[in-house]
């Protein structure tokens, strides 16, 4: 199909974006990402004193597009420096901007997020902000030059799905830039709902990484995103409160 997702002039081979954190091991991560069909994979940036999977991840995922994030940053200033370090480390000007206002809910700090988006766009970044599922916030971010907006389905890591489908429909209907639902996806049907609301894509991590079988769940998510996209494009039937027989009503046997 010719309706591929394009962001900032780059055409992506999948509408599913996938995270690289929290898998049982590196082998499963690589296999799951392969099964997901995702083109764009997210990474974080951390001080080298932190032990764990680091540049190994970068090497193992060679050939894919990296979308580094500013996860954990609480101010625009920290997010901007993190983005600039990520650009240097990974050689990409794409950045998922995340500025957290509350550690318990991981809700974005909208003021800082707008500020970080403004400055990073000015600095030449392709900015994809993680934001509230609020049509006004999404519109402001697009006005500032965000290449896409990434409203939350529900809380990060919660698996609660799309908490407010009505909001998401509104955001998608009005957005001049692609809408990627980021956070909250728990299982395949959540991804389908996000896409049926009109989203251009889905970004998820925990739903796959923490599934009993991450590779199989990645496979399911790949098909869920495709199914939701196709259903949306096909146009669903109207809901009705009464039954409507699908078989002909004439020529019934015995009448």
């Amino acid at each position: 199909m010719s309706d591929a997702l394009t962001i900032a002039g780059v055409t992506l081979s999948s509408r599913l974006f996938i995270g690289t954190a929290g898998y049982p091991n590196q082998r499963i991560m690589v296999d799951a990402i392969q099964a997901s069909g995702a083109d764009l994979v997210t990474l974080s940036v951390r001080r080298i004193s932190l032990q764990g999977h680091g540049s190994d991840t970068v090497r193992l995922l060679a050939g894919r597009r990296f979308l580094p994030n500013t996860a954990g940053c609480e101010t625009a200033r920290d997010a901007i420096l993190t983005a600039q370090l990520a650009r240097e480390a990974l050689g990409t000007n794409w950045i998922k901007v995340e500025v957290i206002g509350d550690r318990e809910t991981l809700y974005p700090d909208v003021g800082e997020l707008l500020e970080a988006t403004r400055e990073l766009v000015d600095d030449g970044f392709v900015v994809l902000p993680y934001c509230n599922d609020d049509p006004v916030v999404c519109a402001r971010l697009a006005d500032l030059g965000a290449a896409a907006v990434m409203p939350m389905g529900s809380l990060i890591g919660s698996g609660m799905g799309v908490a407010n489908p009505g909001n998401l429909e509104l955001i998608c209907a009005r957005s001049p830039v692609p809408v990627i639902v980021d956070a909250g996806i728990g299982t395949a049907s959540d991804a389908v709902i996000a896409m049926e609301c009109g989203a251009s894509g889905v970004l998820l991590n925990t739903a796959v990484a923490k599934a009993d079988d991450p590779v199989r769940m990645a496979h399911a998510m790949r098909h869920a995103v495709e199914a939701g996209w196709n259903a949306r494009q096909a146009g669903r039937i109207a809901r009705r409160g009464r039954a409507e027989p699908s078989s002909p009503q004439l020529g019934l046997v015995g009448s």
Binding site: A21, G22, L43, V45, R47, T57, P68, L85, A89
Partner: peptide, 10 residues
């Protein structure tokens, strides 16, 4: 000085 590396992330 901040010395960073790319890590797994979501």
């Amino acid at each position: 000085v901040e010395i960073i590396r790319a890590f797994a992330g979501g």
